[in-house]
Design a protein around this nucleic acid. Structure first.
Length: 392
DNA sequence: TCTGGGGTCCTAGGACCC
DNA sequence: TCTGGGGTCCTAGGACCC
């Protein structure tokens, strides 16, 4: 039997900001606040007003006009996250950071080695994180990742919850269906239409019925989870990234082709720069377009060879854009993403006879160096400077 | 002033091949 | 002058998570 911990930082971004500026502690506050953005993280005083993560900022301000809004500082959050994961690393190497503020830890072999009780180890961790970073977290302990994750949610805020192997079913079955990881709004609604409200209801439904309603894969997964069956292991090596992309919502919807084209260039440049920074190349380019009514379409195209160059990614994204033949559609957001990534060093690039490389690669690397030294506006394509100039 | 930006994974359908 | 069945690959869409 395994002993898995799930550590979940409470209101992570908001907590980090409150640790930095304690005057934010007792007033309603959220991190977020771009014009058309959403709440990224809200502190508990803000939650009293009904403000929750994912809610449009405009609505949050309406619910609580005096709320303090803090703009996110992701570099700082990443630093704190690394410091927190260093605490886990002192106990075992079986640590899987699943996001900036969550981790699974498999303590099975560490406990066998050192002896002791998982609950005491977990309380020690919570105390150390509070001591070093001044932020609270909640920890769930269970015999699988699935149960540990549900337990950490039950432990919130700032708590610990242990679910022993013989208590799994009694803990699990009363929960609502959307407590299950992977059941969101749409799937929950499908389950409700079948009359299934709790995990127990799912467990008591024949598996083939679930598979007909939800598809073979998801139906099987849900049935197994409803009986507490989950043998996924804690992956200490993080899996290779599969895609890199950028997208941005316009300040207001636009039907101006020029504005859209400029934004596609900006997204291609941002994506390519991040790929170069990580020494990755990619061969599949996806353009996504979200319309004013929130419908979204995507188009993908495959390059002849993997690349990390703005010019090539941009050219493909624009080819996909022109292929849409949109006529004065109102557009909310565009995005560019590159998939089928590979390490640049492992990739042999076929030299082509018809296209001399004409120094683009060297030019873009020089730009990267200038941006590192002088900041993101140091060197830009002429087209991208227009908007900045207009704004001044 | 409704609804971000970073991702992963799954499924359905069509093309193509045997 | 009839038309199965699989397998694989690709694309588009969508659900979901933090």
């Amino acid at each position: 039997m395994r002993t898995i911990l799930h550590v979940d930082m409470d209101a992570f971004y908001a907590s980090v900001e409150m640790a930095r500026d304690p005057s934010l502690k007792n007033v309603p506050m959220f991190v977020g606040g771009s014009a058309r953005g959403v709440v990224l993280s809200a502190n508990y005083p803000a939650r009293v007003y009904g403000i929750t993560a994912g809610m449009p900022s405009t609505r949050a301000r309406r619910l609580c006009p005096q709320v303090m809004v803090v703009h996110p500082d992701f570099d700082h959050y990443t630093e704190v996250s690394k410091a927190v994961s260093a605490v886990f690393d002192t106990l075992t190497d079986k640590v899987e950071m699943t996001s900036i503020d969550e981790a699974f830890i498999d303590l099975t072999s560490a406990l066998r080695r050192l002896g002791g009780d998982a609950g005491i180890v977990a309380e020690g961790m919570r105390a150390q994180i509070m001591d070093e970073q001044r932020i609270p977290c909640s920890i769930g302990i269970g015999p699988s990742k699935f149960i540990a994750k549900l337990a950490s949610k039950a432990a919130k805020p700032d708590g610990l919850k242990v679910v022993a192997p013989d208590a799994v079913i009694s803990f699990l079955h009363p929960l609502p269906v959307d407590a299950i990881w992977g059941v969101g709004e749409v799937t929950a609604e499908k389950l409700h239409r079948l009359g299934l409200m709790t995990v127990r209801d799912i467990a008591n439904t024949p598996r083939p019925t679930l598979q007909r309603a939800l598809g073979e894969g998801q139906g099987r997964l849900l049935f197994d989870l409803a009986w507490g069956q989950d043998d996924r292991s804690v992956l200490s090596r993080e899996p290779a990234e599969r895609s890199i992309g950028s997208q941005e919502t316009f300040g207001c919807d636009t039907d101006d082709e020029e504005v859209v084209a400029t934004e596609i260039l900006r997204m291609a440049a941002r994506t390519a720069a991040r790929m170069r920074a990580q020494s990755m190349v990619g061969q599949v380019v996806t353009l996504s377009v979200r319309f004013a009514d929130f419908t979204t379409i995507t188009r993908t195209g495959t390059l002849r060879a993997p690349t990390d160059l703005t010019g090539e990614i941009h050219a493909e994204a624009m080819r996909l854009w022109r292929k849409l033949h949109l006529q004065r559609a109102r557009i909310r957001r565009v995005g560019v993403r590159v998939e089928k990534l590979a390490e640049k060093d492992d990739t042999y690039v076929q030299p082509t006879l018809d296209e001399p490389t004409c120094g683009w690669e060297q030019a873009e690397r020089a730009v990267d160096r200038a941006v590192l030294r002088f900041g993101p506006t140091a060197v830009q394509r002429a087209r991208l400077t227009v908007r900045a100039a207009q704004a001044t």
